[in-house]
Design a binder for these strands. Structure first.
Lengths: 204, 204
DNA sequence: CCAGCAATCAATCAGTTGATTGAGAGGATT
DNA sequence: AATCCTCTCAATCAACTGATTGATTGCTGG
């Protein structure tokens, strides 16, 4: 989608790496990891295969580069909002908004992430990059649930770890979106909130 | 795992196909879809590549065969329990038990299923086999939630579709199990139940 | 201005990979 | 026994694929 039209002459090594990562991500979305070819990436960037190998020595390294790129985007997104001094419920809403923005601004991010997750199961190099990322996301929710319980606005019998796993699992599964189920993401957000947040009538 | 030791002479076409599907599934677990090779499958079955192609004309057809095999196992599992005359809560517990048995008896099933789900996103042939299966699973929960609400034992403001998506999403995401989160599946079951089922103290 | 480095590419390699061909073996039917 | 059908394999193909080589181009510091 966002491609350099014509890399006129030369590009710095870092810029090329970024372009390679972007191209690789787009191709993973289109053809999956099993359809990813170094030649296709080079073509999309507009460079020779040898040049690609100059910047990224092997396909293994290429996958790692993609994983790092995904991590950078993901963390960049979640650091855009000020989180201090917010209540548990406000933080929960912020996470939902973050997720909504991710699927709006970077729709390929979650798709590539799940492909990488599959690979992480049998590739330690990818696992060390991706697992902490996913765990970080989940831990955000763990903290939110702890805070919300302490504040009295969340259901007091929540198991924060289990609840966090349910939320992240539901959201990432939703985003695969290959199902016939045509629920809006808002319906999911609403239902998750009802599942864990006390309604005023039940409080006190 | 369960492989024919040595196919002495000849095998009927159907038996061979079953053996091929089993071998393919094991190899998908080991190396993922992107590492699946027809030669490896033939080797594991103990036949020539040409013989493999005699039974399964193309790799596309092979993937479809695997998808059908997965579907058969999955549906076979969910039909082992009598479901008539049960309450919503009982049905929910039955679904949980089904899931527990699947991950105990056929641990590779969910792994292969998620690999196929990735592929289904861009392969219509796989999508037509896998999507209905997943939708069937989700619809089970939709019906359970409707029933539970009507019976008054579930939270009355549940959106059955959203809730079903949350449950199936959380369970399938849990099963990937690559995370550091070491929650037991029971903790997930318990938390899901708390999220949607009314506790006695909150009822009327 | 030129030496050195970063970046690039055409050409090519060696190994892989899905698929085909043509021949043949074993069993059943006639 | 002749015929036919199912199943099997050795050999082979053409295309693909990740990676390398050696030469070339342009920028930059001295």
């Amino acid at each position: 989608m966002t491609l350099p039209i014509a890399p006129v002459k030369r590009e710095s090594g870092d810029d090329r790496k970024v372009a390679i990562a972007i191209a690789a991500r787009a191709l993973i979305v289109e053809k999956g990891m099993e359809g990813l070819r170094t030649r296709d990436i080079a073509d999309r960037v507009g460079i020779n295969i040898a040049t690609l190998h100059y910047h990224v020595p092997s396909k293994e390294a290429l996958i790692s580069l993609v994983a790092s790129s995904i991590r950078a985007d993901f963390q960049g997104q979640s650091q855009r909002r000020q989180r201090q001094g917010k209540s548990g419920l406000q933080l929960l809403h912020m996470e939902f908004e973050d997720f909504r923005e991710i699927i709006a601004d970077m729709p390929d991010l979650i798709i590539v992430l799940t492909e990488l997750v599959e690979r992480a199961r049998r590739d330690p190099a990818i696992s060390t990059i991706i697992s902490p990322l996913y765990d970080y996301w989940r831990n955000q929710f763990v903290e939110i649930f702890r805070k919300g319980i302490a504040e009295g606005s969340f259901r007091p019998d929540i198991d924060p770890f289990a609840a966090a796993l349910i939320v992240t699992g539901a959201l990432s599964d939703y985003w695969r979106g290959w199902t016939e189920f045509q629920n809006s993401i808002d319906a999911i957000f609403t239902e998750l909130e009802r599942a864990f947040v006390l309604t005023p009538s039940l409080k006190g």
